[in-house]
Simulated assay, not measured.
Amino acid sequence: MSQSRATERSVLTSEQLEIVDKTHHPAIYDVDAKELHALRKQIRNEKGKVRTLVRQRQREARGKAEARGNSFPGNTEQPLKRKQALSAALKRVNRELVRQRALEARSSNGDAARRALAAKRNANFENPLPQQDRTSGGGMQPVPSTRRRKIIPGSQIGSVSQQNKNAQARRDKRAG
């Protein structure tokens, strides 16, 4: 669920708020890809710190771990909201990186298409292929097969089945 900017301001520290403000609507379009990668790294680091804090607080609440340090600021709900705000900022940065990559790919594809069209148009006006005549070449030559041909004489066709019939008739004659 998305959070309002007022909720982000109330939950985040001033350092975190400064980072997250760069990810909102008008400001994010002024940031180039290199800065977005650095911003993503900062947000991930902050989110990792908050995640550690949230997990520790949850373990304390269940009685699985003792408290670390004197005390953590705020209650258990605040770190969760802080983590959600940082996650939303990370999503915005990732979406903007994808958008910038798609825009760059679209422009480079357009340039490549224009170059290909120009090359095709130039090819239409260049030297045509020489005219083919009857003495231009021998063409394809037949390659004789190296497989052995199996020729069965007509007198053998069906002789095996006839032999079986004759043998069966002799057996039947003896049995009867």
Results as ranks from 00 to 15, higher is better:
residue 111 D to Y: 05
residue 112 A to D: 07
residue 89 A to G: 02
residue 60 E to Y: 04
residue 18 E to A: 14
residue 166 N to W: 02
residue 149 R to K: 15
residue 72 F to I: 06
residue 157 I to R: 13
residue 133 D to E: 12
residue 90 L to P: 00
residue 67 A to M: 14
residue 50 V to W: 01
residue 85 A to D: 05
residue 49 K to F: 08
residue 4 S to H: 04
residue 133 D to N: 14
residue 14 S to A: 15
residue 104 E to V: 04
residue 95 R to P: 00
residue 155 S to W: 11
residue 83 K to G: 01
residue 123 A to F: 05
residue 50 V to L: 04
residue 163 Q to L: 11
residue 58 Q to W: 02
residue 88 A to Q: 08
residue 171 R to A: 11
residue 124 N to D: 13
residue 36 L to E: 04
residue 163 Q to M: 09
residue 92 R to F: 03
residue 96 E to R: 08
residue 116 A to C: 00
residue 10 S to E: 12
residue 47 K to E: 01
residue 155 S to L: 07
residue 159 S to V: 08
residue 173 K to T: 13
residue 111 D to T: 09
residue 170 R to S: 10
residue 95 R to E: 11
residue 110 G to Q: 10
residue 81 K to N: 05
residue 29 Y to G: 00
residue 174 R to N: 08
residue 93 V to I: 04
residue 78 Q to A: 10
residue 109 N to E: 15
residue 39 L to S: 02
residue 90 L to Y: 01
residue 11 V to C: 00
residue 72 F to R: 03
residue 46 E to M: 11
residue 149 R to M: 13
residue 37 H to L: 10
residue 84 Q to R: 07
residue 147 R to Y: 10
residue 124 N to Q: 14
residue 97 L to P: 03
residue 8 E to T: 01
residue 99 R to E: 07
residue 84 Q to A: 11
residue 29 Y to K: 11
residue 99 R to N: 06
residue 36 L to N: 03
residue 101 R to T: 06
residue 34 K to S: 12
residue 19 I to N: 01
residue 78 Q to M: 11
residue 72 F to Y: 15
residue 20 V to F: 01
residue 173 K to Q: 13
residue 70 N to C: 00
residue 176 G to A: 12
residue 67 A to I: 14
residue 38 A to R: 09
residue 96 E to T: 02
residue 106 R to S: 14
residue 45 N to R: 13
residue 170 R to E: 14
residue 60 E to P: 03
residue 103 L to H: 07
residue 104 E to K: 10
residue 146 T to L: 09
residue 124 N to T: 12
residue 114 R to I: 10
residue 84 Q to T: 06
residue 166 N to E: 12
residue 62 R to D: 15
residue 136 S to M: 11
residue 50 V to Y: 01
residue 75 N to C: 03
residue 44 R to Y: 04
residue 27 A to Q: 10
residue 11 V to Q: 01
residue 116 A to T: 11
residue 126 E to M: 09
residue 92 R to V: 04
residue 69 G to Y: 05
residue 104 E to Y: 02
residue 43 I to T: 06
residue 130 P to D: 01
residue 128 P to F: 07
residue 53 L to Q: 08
residue 22 K to D: 06
residue 46 E to D: 06
residue 172 D to K: 13
residue 81 K to I: 03
residue 22 K to W: 03
residue 163 Q to C: 01
residue 29 Y to L: 12
residue 149 R to C: 05
residue 90 L to N: 00
residue 16 Q to F: 04
residue 38 A to G: 13
residue 99 R to D: 07
residue 141 Q to L: 12
residue 122 N to D: 13
residue 166 N to Y: 05
residue 67 A to H: 14
residue 24 H to E: 04
residue 87 S to H: 03
residue 64 K to R: 15
residue 44 R to F: 01
residue 149 R to I: 12
residue 123 A to I: 02
residue 21 D to E: 14
residue 145 S to D: 15
residue 58 Q to E: 15
residue 78 Q to I: 14
residue 3 Q to R: 13
residue 43 I to P: 02
residue 118 A to E: 14
residue 76 T to D: 15
residue 110 G to K: 09
residue 56 Q to G: 04
residue 161 S to T: 14
